[in-house]
Write a protein that binds this DNA or RNA. Structure first.
Length: 246
DNA sequence: CCTGTATGACCGAGGTCACA
DNA sequence: TGTGACCTCGGTCATACAGG
């Protein structure tokens, strides 16, 4: 049977089904007359007339052919699914020259492997995305801190004599950077990922407020001591020069 | 609401065919 | 000759629908 013939027969059969339903709906048949179409009564043909037996036979024939066509349709759908899978999954595609086609079992197996690979890739990308999000958050916090400091300093410069000189600012900044660099240089930097994953723990461990406060305190003490020493030297020199005139 | 019927879909068994 | 793909058939289940 050709495909077209099969399709035509299928359509005709389909129409018959609709007709069957409509006639069933429109007729005044009793449950007994409906039961003539059931398979159960096929085996007890002697209870029916010859015409009834013929109608039962044609019904069985129709039912069988419809079943065959439906089965063909189902197989086609399954085959189409396998073909689609083979097109979608990279390792399922046949090589160009040979036209080699994988078996259905292999197509399923390769598809499962490919889905597993895609799942792994997805997890990996989610991890990377999460790490980058954390980094962005940390950098935003630092940025906000600096912006707040700058804003506060600009709005409250303080009295003239209390203002810190540029040199003093530089000394404090230098001290903080030098001390932090000692620890920062131990972060692995073979690649960008190592660097980004190392920066966050370093920030959390070495950039705590009390650490920065200690550095600042030590530096200020040292600067105060140096200033005091300078003042003492200056006073001594003034005394020497003043004593000479007196 | 319940029951009977028709229909579509799924599944397993068994057969056929092409191919390596 | 084994194997994979395909086909047919019968059984079964779920669902829609009509009628009581």
């Amino acid at each position: 049977m050709s495909d077209n013939a099969a399709k035509e027969e299928y359509n005709m059969d389909h129409d018959n089904k609709h007709y069957s339903r409509c006639s069933s709906a429109g007729s005044t048949h009793t449950p007994n007359s409906s039961a003539h179409n059931s398979d159960d009564d096929d085996d007890s043909g002697d209870r029916h007339s010859t015409s009834a037996a013929n109608s039962t036979l044609s019904y069985k024939e129709r039912r069988r052919e419809a079943h065959t066509q439906a089965e063909q349709k189902r197989r086609d759908a399954i085959k189409k699914g396998y073909d689609s899978l083979q097109e979608l999954v990279p390792r399922c595609q046949p090589s160009d020259s040979s036209g080699y086609k994988l078996s259905k079992a292999l197509i399923l197996q390769k598809s499962i492997e490919y889905i597993g690979y895609l799942n792994q890739q997805k997890l990996k990308q989610e991890d990377e995305s999460s790490a980058l999000q954390k980094e962005v958050t940390a950098l935003r916090i630092i940025q906000n801190g600096y912006e707040n400091m700058l804003q506060h300093q600009q709005s409250n410069p303080g009295p003239e004599e209390a203002r810190v000189t540029e040199e003093a600012k530089f000394q404090v900044f230098q001290a903080i950077l030098e001390e932090m660099f000692d620890t920062f240089q131990h972060i692995p930097m073979d690649n960008f990922k190592q660097l980004t994953t190392g920066v966050i723990p370093w920030l959390e461990e070495h950039c705590k407020p009390h650490i920065l406060r200690n550095i600042l305190s030590r530096t200020l003490q040292q600067m105060a001591q140096e200033t005091q020493e300078k003042q003492q030297q200056q006073q001594a020199m003034e005394q020497e020069t003043g004593g000479g005139f007196s």
